[in-house]
Nucleic acid binder design. Structure first.
Lengths: 143, 143
DNA sequence: TATTGTTATACTCTATAACTATA
DNA sequence: TATAGTTATAGAGTATAACAATA
């Protein structure tokens, strides 16, 4: 049935996001990393020593919300809050060896999930979609 | 800074969705309809007499979650739960005159929000994005 | 004065399970 | 037996406000 909703990009974006989110969870399985925890681990591995404030800014979430995520990653021994001589305010985040290993493994799983899920689009279409989303983000996200 | 996250469609989808969601709220303002309430009102106006079960299916949310949405719309006098002689189990949803009026008005506001927000993409790009999202949904949403 | 990390708190959205009344 | 609407409940995810320690 035709609906005005179908012509709204926002609504289609939401529905598409729900599909991806659900499949991500299903793929990572019970006890697996959630999307937001995975994204935090990714940046910590890529930018070892990043502070929580900078990580929150990069992920576009509040510092307060990041605490639980970092707690979870630290409990799982995937990263450490380290102390810096001379600056007792920051506690840069450093991935453990296990953290780096888990990241590489989970990244492959996530890529598999994306490849499978987005296979309903042709390869050029996948690139198009990615490009359009990036351009939209670049033009609209504040800062 | 380059990150593996930037190459994941899902992550970009999430970030784009967050931007749209935030702007939707800001545009509709305090006390305005939320996105999900607007989507429900839309279908009730377009398909007067739709049941809650069918509406939940169409919106891809649980029946239980729809109750609060319908409650809100009924409190705002934008729709009515009507009774059907001969079937006391269903209570089809019918938009009120105010509901139809508000819908038309809000739809224009929402279109304005989308036009403004997505103006960072060229018109052809907007169509492309919409088309790709629809195709993805069609290929992946269950049923 | 401003910033980092943190806690407390609340709100939105969604889902699961179970109930009731009906069909 | 199955379905429509509902309630209760919980779990993600996010945000705001405030605070202590530190810069």
């Amino acid at each position: 049935m035709a609906s005005a909703l179908n012509d709204l990009i926002g609504y289609n974006l939401k529905r598409a996001y729900m599909v991806v989110q659900a499949d991500f969870r299903e793929t990572l399985g019970k006890g697996g990393l959630t999307a937001r925890v995975f994204s935090a681990l990714t940046l910590v591995v890529e930018q070892p020593g990043i502070t929580q404030s900078d990580l929150a800014r990069a992920l576009r979430i509040e510092r307060s919300g990041l605490v639980a995520i970092v707690d979870e990653l630290e409990e799982k021994k995937l990263l450490k809050r380290v102390s810096v001589p001379g600056n007792r305010r920051v506690q840069p985040l450093r991935p453990t060896a296990a953290g780096k290993k888990v990241f590489r493994s989970v990244l492959q799983t996530v890529r598999g999930h994306e490849d499978r899920l987005f296979s309903v689009l042709a390869p050029e279409e996948q690139v198009q979609l990615l490009t359009l989303l990036k351009k939209f983000r670049q033009g609209t996200e504040k800062d």
